[in-house]
Nucleic acid binder design. Sequence first.
RNA 1: GCGCCCGUAGCUCAGCUGGAUAGAGCGAAGGACUUCUAAUCCUUAGGUCGGGGGUUCGAAUCCCUCCGGGCGCGCCA
Length: 585
Amino acid sequence: MGNLIMTDLSQKADDNTYEKLRQNIIKIIEGFCTDVFNHHAITVTPPSNNTHGDLACNALLIAAKALGQKRSEAIETIKLKLPACEDILKIDIIGPGFINIFFKPTYWQKQLKKVLSMKENFGHTLEKNGSKINIEFVSTNPTGPLHVGHGRSAVLGDTLARILSACGYDVTKEYYINDAGNQVNHLAASTHLRYLETLGEKINASQFTADMYGGDYLIPLGQHIAKIDGKKWHKWDQETLVYFRKTSVDYLMEGIKNDLNLLNIEFDIFTSEQKLIDEERVKQAVDYLQKQGYLYRGFLDKPLGHDGEDYEAREQLLFKTTDFGDDKDRALFKSDGTYTYFASDIAYHYDKYKRGFDACIDVWGADHIGYVQRLKAATKAIANKDLEIVIAQMVNFLEDGKPYKMSKRAGTFVTLREVIEDIGADSFRFMLLSRQHDTKYDFDFHIVREQSKDNWVFYVQYAYARICSVKRRFQELWPDKNFTNEYLEYLTWDNEFSIIKLVNDFPRHVLLAAQHREPHRLVHYLYDLACAFHTLWSEGRAKEYRFIEPDQFELTCARLCLLEAIGFTIKSGMTMLGVSLKEQM
RNA sequence: GCGCCCGUAGCUCAGCUGGAUAGAGCGAAGGACUUCUAAUCCUUAGGUCGGGGGUUCGAAUCCCUCCGGGCGCGCCA
């Protein structure tokens, strides 16, 4: 796991109020301890119940044993020393021994100013931390357009990249093109049939065997080649094969890139499997493993979970991945002497680490779960690195509880493009990100089409639009003025402070999302923030609370500052999720 | 058989490297529009956190075990 990365992040937080307090409390407690205690277990976090103050620390509980008799002395010192900090209003020590910290209103006003100065960058770690992360995702075979099932891992990978780079990492987004296997020969042959069809030959569906690609999407390519080259490729020979392989892969990759762009996804680098093989990188990797003594000649058992009718035991060269945590050893060569996919994947990951990344993350669909241990074992063996693999579980696409127009034409599928054109990239991204990525998800299009609280992306976008509408109103009233942050002391109401506190908590959620590789935390945070805003908007009305008071400029400025901070937070968060915002709905 | 994931309110899900009285939305019942867009908001009802053990000041969270569900296990990629 990425423990290295997690430590990095927590050490990064020296400007963080929580971390400062934590260090102070630890220092005080250490002075009274006769024994060691686990510093790492001590946390300073906002308590779930706001009557317990603004921050709570569990240090006394963690260090209870180490403190022994001196516990009450430590408590006295904490109560004495911490309030010396000008921001702290009071310290309570209650319950089983939580240190509850209450801040003065001036502290929150100060924090608000900080948010305003960072604008849409609020939540970002501004200075680079020097770590290079490679994140590889999508990487589907270039044998057809992306289908809707690819959406989740695509969005997950892209969003993780955005969040990690917001946290100061140097992130490279990579796509590995599997353009070497047998499937590409089948692809070339399929395109060739479409080409012949364009030239007027009678092609019937049965000529597309099960291994081939009979979907309509190759027809335009066949037509295109016929138009450019006429009958030049009529004969199926080696030269034709090479040409059709390359042309087909290029064509489909172009389509895949376009579809991904629709989803707001762009890659930094595309790596070709065929190129690795041509440059003998796979050979080098296998030779290296051989030299290390990890390879041997042996037999593999008949695979389980299949009928295995066509299985034949065969002596072959095996990689002893079981020494590195895999549950069986793996083959590197097929019976025809070419490399297995696994062999080139080893070379590929070896290559990534050699390019100098401190961490590599692969984002895969659930259908590759069985491959995790194998590849982790291999990268451990060849590069002595722990590859990190994030799994996006299956998504069931539904329309009002029923399967979403699945398999409407024989041999085809619902493409990613048609879904995005149907519901839009914003909804698609936001909803797919709203759930923990390693649990399966029933995605209902019916909900996404609604404009209501059920549709989360709408709800958050609506909050942002409301904020913009208040700002427009301000400009109408005071056309020649801007609201300044000089009057924040006019913010006095409890509900205003609760929302400042929520805004202030945003960077912590960003770090957590990055550390755990869990963008859904941000989605939930933004939903909660939007909810708090809508509450302030409406609940305030009962108390005749208005953001804009036409005859009180200072008060209005203060409230507009609060709205502005909420707006920056929403903007920052939504940008990390790759979702857009509108100033008017 | 083995590996990974999941089991929290009627439904869909949050729950922070273990923390205080387990939280949202939907659905159900009731209420709020002379407004900065009611595309919203407020009440109320609803839970032995799948069962059982263990670890400790403390467990929805960690460990073991059982039950139930999903995905995957090949010389495919």
